[in-house]
């Protein structure tokens, strides 16, 4: 997957690049409006991560530029402005998703993958690892072809783990992924523990391997190297 990161803050762009680099994503940077515009005009990207507050222009204008070029790139807006209007404007102008800063890198990654799957309609809706496969179109999860009875939240959780394999997922990041804004008001993370426990139980019951492990007692990790 080829990704263009349009973000004026180099450190933040570097964070994103660092995280995505391990996922076999080719990342390029555009630190300014002009730089980004040049790159979009010259190259083809699968996905563009777009900060709408740029030093030399409005990211929303850039969004229009991307749309008029019919480049076929998906656009994920990242913004520090939590303003409702910006969100609505951005989505109306054809952005595929909107993420408010500060975001969790696994969350950004999951969103990116999700819009990538949605865009490539002929592409695969199945995310799989060994005996576990998740179909994002039919919302079915299988272990060795046996259908798992998962709740919506458990399904989302499994997908989140599969996309962020071998990554430490903090409880906050999981809570925010599953509950969105509501997680803000629920500083108690017992419910994350509950969901992870149920998911592990269901996978084991279907004779799947227990890939999900607790990390440092504070987060979780989907280990592909489990013996």
């Amino acid at each position: 997957m080829k990704v263009l990161i349009v973000e004026d803050n180099r450190e933040l762009a570097e964070n994103i690049r660092g995280y995505l680099a391990r996922e076999a994503c080719v990342c390029e940077h555009g630190y300014t409006y002009g730089e980004a515009q040049d790159k979009i005009a010259a190259y083809q990207y699968d996905c563009i991560i777009l900060d709408i507050m740029l030093p030399d222009g409005d990211g929303l204008d850039l969004l229009e530029f991307i749309r008029t070029r019919k480049a076929g790139s998906s656009v994920l807006i990242i913004s520090a402005k939590n303003a409702l209007d910006d969100k609505v404007n951005g989505l109306e102008l054809g952005a595929d998703d909107y993420l408010t800063k500060p975001f969790h890198l696994p969350e950004l990654h999951a969103r990116l993958k999700a819009i990538y799957r949605r865009k490539n309609l002929d592409g695969d809706h199945v995310v799989s690892f060994n005996e576990i496969s998740v179909n994002t179109a039919t919302l079915e999860a299988r272990v060795n072809d046996a259908l798992l009875e998962l709740t919506k939240k458990e399904f989302d959780l499994l997908l989140y783990f599969l996309i962020n394999k071998n990554r430490v997922l903090t409880r906050q990041s999981i809570a925010e992924h599953l509950w969105g804004d509501y997680a803000d008001n629920l500083a108690n993370f017992d419910f994350v523990y509950q969901h992870v426990k149920n998911l592990r139980k269901k996978i084991s019951a279907a004779n799947g391997k227990d890939y999900i492990g607790t990390v440092y007692g504070l987060g979780y990790k989907f280990n592909t190297h489990t013996a």
Partner: peptide, 30 residues
Amino acid sequence: ASHELQTPLAIIRGKLELLLESGISDEQAR
């Protein structure tokens, strides 16, 4: 203030998340 604070916060958070991925000891992870 909102913008200027959120950006460094996002950077710190990202760096910590990246740091968690590197080979670190349990003590460091905590």
